[in-house]
Design a binder for these strands. Structure first.
Lengths: 192, 192
DNA sequence: GATAAACGTTTACAAAAGACAAGAAATGCT
DNA sequence: AGCATTTCTTGTCTTTTGTAAACGTTTATC
């Protein structure tokens, strides 16, 4: 299953076989049930995940409500970035929505890899550049678009995801209530 | 003025004097008037900026309105990231709100530096990590907080900025109209 | 120093979204 | 298959925000 990981990294940096061995040695395979919390509220985390199979969301809890801030599927890196970087307890919860297959990488191992593998900084730099563009687009959409437009963009960009994730999770992700999303959907259907 | 730049980078990576010379050689100093557009609408950009002095905002144009998406002050990197990375025409405008002093770095020179200076990938990786945390916090705030809370956080985080930027630019930055911001300010004053 | 432009606030009215509650439909579990 | 839970929709009422326009004030510019 680690081949799938390297297929992904090959898009950014070509590691030598020896380097891949070093990396593979610190990647741990993990298979978990739906509803597993990879990172729990107010707990520190020292690892990052690569999602091989399944679907994951990140959410915050505000006034007793779960507010989804991110939804991811196969072949993406996931982590409670804030907690990982600063060492503070995580305010975001990372939860599996389906049975998932993951690779985990400890932060300490990553730090070691930065010294062992010259291309590692380059890989992470490039991954972060991609991530940053995504974040920027998401943030821009919040500023520029109303909820209806955001919903349409989400559907256009990620059609399959709607069948995998309950609607009310999307609602909070769009910054609206489930009630409101239901009305928006109705409005869109009426036009089509 | 390049010392100020290296004071900043020293927080992340310690370059040797020789490396600093290489870097300094491709940094160009620039002094511009207020209202200068560093990146214009629908133009490609091939450089990134380090702001030594002054205040800059990024904005989008939507339905003839300017929507501010970012406001920055001294000692920050600025660029139309999307355009810089993908080579596409920029949808964001970068405008100086005050007379500014900048260092500019061409993308092509940066690519060369990645090969000349081992620590360059590391520097940019670390800068991107910081930036990502900022973006994440901004995005999270949009999902979690209402406009009033976002305004309060902005003021708490950056008290001085209010005196440097017109209120209606903040309003669009918060995702609301100037009218609405005025109401929010009134409400806050009434409580205090 | 005069004039124009930009800025901040306020008002009335319209549109959108939230809160709350009820009920239908789909899904999960044993 | 049957029961419980979750999910989705709908209705009514309230709150918030947007739109548009007016007005006084500040700031720029010549």
């Amino acid at each position: 299953m680690k081949e799938q990981f390297f297929v992904h990294t090959d898009n950014y940096v070509k590691f030598t076989p020896a380097e891949k061995d070093l990396l593979a040695a610190v990647l741990t395979f993990r298979k978990v049930n739906a509803k597993t919390e990879l990172v729990s509220f107010d707990k520190r985390t020292d690892q990052l995940f690569f999602l091989l199979k399944g679907c994951i969301r990140k959410y915050y809890v505000k006034d007793g409500e779960q507010i989804t801030i991110h939804i991811l599927t196969e072949n993406n890196f996931v982590s409670a970035f804030d907690s990982l970087m600063t060492g503070s307890p995580s305010k975001e919860v990372i939860e599996c929505l389906e049975p998932c297959e993951l690779l985990t990488l400890k932060k300490a191992d990553l730090e070691t890899l930065y010294h062992q593998i010259p291309g590692m900084n380059e890989l992470v730099r490039k991954l972060l550049e991609q991530t940053l563009i995504q974040f920027q687009q998401a943030l821009t959409s919040f500023i520029l678009d109303n909820p209806e437009e955001r919903y349409k963009k989400l559907v256009a960009k990620n059609p399959g995801i709607l069948q995998r994730v309950p609607q009310h999770m999307f609602a909070t992700y769009l910054g609206i209530t489930a009630t409101s999303l239901s009305r928006i959907r109705k409005r869109i259907l009426a036009k089509a």
